[in-house]
Design a binder for these strands. Sequence first.
DNA 1: TATTGTTATACTCTATAACTATA
DNA 2: TATAGTTATAGAGTATAACAATA
Lengths: 160, 160
Amino acid sequence: MNATPEQVACEVLDVAPQMMRAIREQMRGHRAAEVSVPQFRALGFLEAHEGASLTDVADHIGLTLPSMSKLMDGLVERKLAKREFDALDRRRVTLELTPRGRAVLQAARDSTHAYLAEVLTRLSPAERTTVMQAMQALRPLFKSEREAQIEAERSHDEPA
Amino acid sequence: MNATPEQVACEVLDVAPQMMRAIREQMRGHRAAEVSVPQFRALGFLEAHEGASLTDVADHIGLTLPSMSKLMDGLVERKLAKREFDALDRRRVTLELTPRGRAVLQAARDSTHAYLAEVLTRLSPAERTTVMQAMQALRPLFKSEREAQIEAERSHDEPA
DNA sequence: TATTGTTATACTCTATAACTATA
DNA sequence: TATAGTTATAGAGTATAACAATA
C-alpha cells in the first residue's frame, strides 16, 4: 500500500472524532470519576509537573489562558486541585493535585484504559502493533505550537 | 514489538485528543468555512444521505436527539441545511444540504485535508502507510452503538 | 512597559427531563 | 401507547476583549 498524505488525512478526519466521542463518553460516563477529557489531561499534567503555573498547563493542553483559568476553577471547586499564589512572583499561580484529585485521576485513568484495552482486544496482535506505531508516529506532529517552540529552544540549548 | 492492549490504550488516550485539538482549530479557524467538527460531520452525512431524518444523523454522529436538533438549528439558521416535514410521516423531518451548505462543506474539507496532508508529509511513506492501516483497523471499533446495531441487523438480513 | 492571570461576554457541544405532535 | 422531534434547563469547553495586579 502506498498511502498519500491526502488519503491518510481523509481517514484520520473520519476516525479520530469517533474515537474521541467514545473516550469522552467513557470518561464522563456513569461509574468512575466523572471528569471531562480536558480536565483529565490537566490533572495528568499536574501529576507530572507539580507546582506548574497556569501558563504551563495551558501551553501543554493547547488552551488559551482564560479557558484554562475557567477549567481550573472547576477543578479547584471540586477540590481536585489546589491553586496558590507563587511567593516569589506574585503574578504567578502554582497548581497541584489534592490527594482527592490524585485518586480521581487514577480512577478515570483506570476506567478509560480498561475500556480502551477491552475494545482493542478485538484487534489482532499485529493490528495492535500497527496502531501503537501509528500513534507514536503521530504524537510529535500534533504538539501545541507553544510546546513545540519550547522544545525547539531546549534542544537548541542542548544540541543532540 | 508486542503491544499489549493496555499500552496501546495509553498511547491512544494521549495522542487522540491532541490530534482532535489541531483538527478543531483548523476547521473553526481563520480562513475556510468556520464550522465546528460536529457540524462538519453532520454536513458530511447529509451529503451522503440526502433526505435523512434527524434520528439518522444523530445515530451516525453519536449525539442525542436534542443535541442534534440544536446543532441543526445552527445549520438551518446559517442556511447550510434545509429542514422540512416529511409528507408521509409528519412526525419526521427530512434534512438536506443547501447549495451553500455543499460549498461550505467542501471548503472545510479542502482546508482540513490540506492541513492534515501537510502535517503528514513529515512522516515517511512507510509511517504514513502504518497510520493508514491503523485508522482502518480502528474505524470499526468506534462506531456508535446504535449504528453498530443497525449494521448487525442488516448483515443478519443479508448474510455474507 | 511586559507578563500573569481573571472577568466579562458569547458561542457551541452535550446531556437529561419534560413536552408536543403524529402514528 | 409508541415514535420523532423540540423546548427547557444546565454545565463544560472554547474564544476574544478588557481588566487588574505584579514585575
